[in-house]
């Protein structure tokens, strides 16, 4: 091999890892480039969403299931962190971990009856869970503060430094997001990721090859709920204020839209989908009034034209074109 071949081989072999490092490098410099707290605020929101979206993509895109209720787990994470830190003066980090563990357990309990369902029934069951959670957040005034929510959530702090401005928060949430992105990429490339894809495409065949279909679905569902919970905890500490409006079924559908735009089963696609949906209102000012309609339109259009989602759909098309071309040559 010539040195040039060696370099190309190295790049090809480590393309995923290198891309992650490249992204991390860019994010390290981003606060200096952005220079404006408003832009940073938006980018932080992308990171917070991304953590939940990657988890949801593992469940929807890889394992081929559907959840229209993931905002509920984001909400449980946010409310859990808020309540433990406001009322019990718990260290925010301890609270975050404790809430994530509790949400994992709750998701496990939900998974036992729910994941026996599939398709529309699974969609309805997860939707129902979200509505129940939202109703509790709205109605249980004494604890959740009702519709007006909870305020005065303490900021996170690290090594005595309180993370209370956009730039500090940028480094915190994007560190989380990069770690989650890496874990997601790892899982997707592992034999477990393959097993999940197998479950999504043919449960009977997967089962007869030795894959425990029910267990695989439950595990990835619990993982996605934990990531949603982390996302919620970060959301709460970032804004220091939460109310039930951030955790409705429409927020769940927004998360699904991010997954679908990015592409089912594409971790990098999730980054794209999340960025696009968070940025969209910044460019379209009439957006707010028609938010749910536009999300719905995007969702339906993508699903009709590219059922695999925008990024992975285009990727698959390109791959087949290339293979066909090579075959004819």
């Amino acid at each position: 091999m010539t040195p040039r071949d060696k370099i190309l081989y190295f790049l090809r072999l480590h393309r995923t890892g290198l891309t992650v490092w490249l992204l991390a490098g860019f994010l390290l410099a981003f606060p200096a480039l952005a220079g404006n707290p408003y832009v940073l605020g938006i980018s932080n929101l992308i990171a917070v969403y991304l953590i939940a979206v990657i988890g949801l993509n593992l469940f929807i895109g890889y394992a081929g299931q559907i959840s229209l209720g993931h905002a509920a787990y984001v909400g449980l994470g946010a409310y859990g962190s808020a309540l433990l830190t406001i009322h019990f003066d718990l260290n925010p980090w301890v609270a975050m971990a404790a809430v994530a563990a509790a949400v994992a357990f709750a998701a496990f309990l939900v998974a036992i009856p729910t994941l026996r369902l599939s398709g529309h029934y699974l969609a309805m069951a997860t939707l129902g869970f979200n509505i129940v959670c939202h109703t509790v957040m709205t109605q249980w005034d004494q604890v959740t503060g009702g519709p007006s929510g909870l305020a005065g959530i303490p900021p996170l702090s690290l090594g005595g430094v309180s993370i209370d401005d956009e730039a500090k928060f940028h480094y915190l949430v994007w560190s989380f997001a990069i770690v989650v992105l890496t874990l997601g990429l790892n899982l997707a490339r592992s034999s477990l990721g393959l097993a999940l894809a197998a479950v999504a495409q043919n449960e009977t065949a997967a089962e007869s090859l030795g894959i425990q279909v029910g267990r695989a679905k439950t595990r990835v569902f619990v993982l996605s709920a934990v990531l949603a919970s982390l996302s919620g905890s970060l959301f709460a500490h970032c804004f220091t204020f939460i109310n039930p409006d951030s955790f409705t079924i429409f927020n769940s559908i927004e998360l699904v839209t991010m997954v679908v735009i990015g592409g089912l089963g594409s971790i990098w696609g999730s980054l794209f989908g999340t960025t696009l949906i968070v940025l969209l209102p910044e460019f379209l000012h009439f957006f707010d009034a028609f938010r749910d309609i536009i999300h719905g339109l995007i969702l339906v259009t993508v699903l009709i034209l590219l059922p695999q989602g925008l990024v992975s759909g285009l990727r698959d098309l390109l791959r087949i074109k290339l293979l066909a071309g090579r075959n004819n040559a």
């Binding site: 790892n186 490339r189 592992s190 034999s191 477990l192 993982l223």
Partner: peptide, 10 residues
């Protein structure tokens, strides 16, 4: 059988 944690950490 791949474990979840090992798959995540690679």
């Amino acid at each position: 059988e791949p474990s979840m944690l090992r798959s995540l950490l690679r």
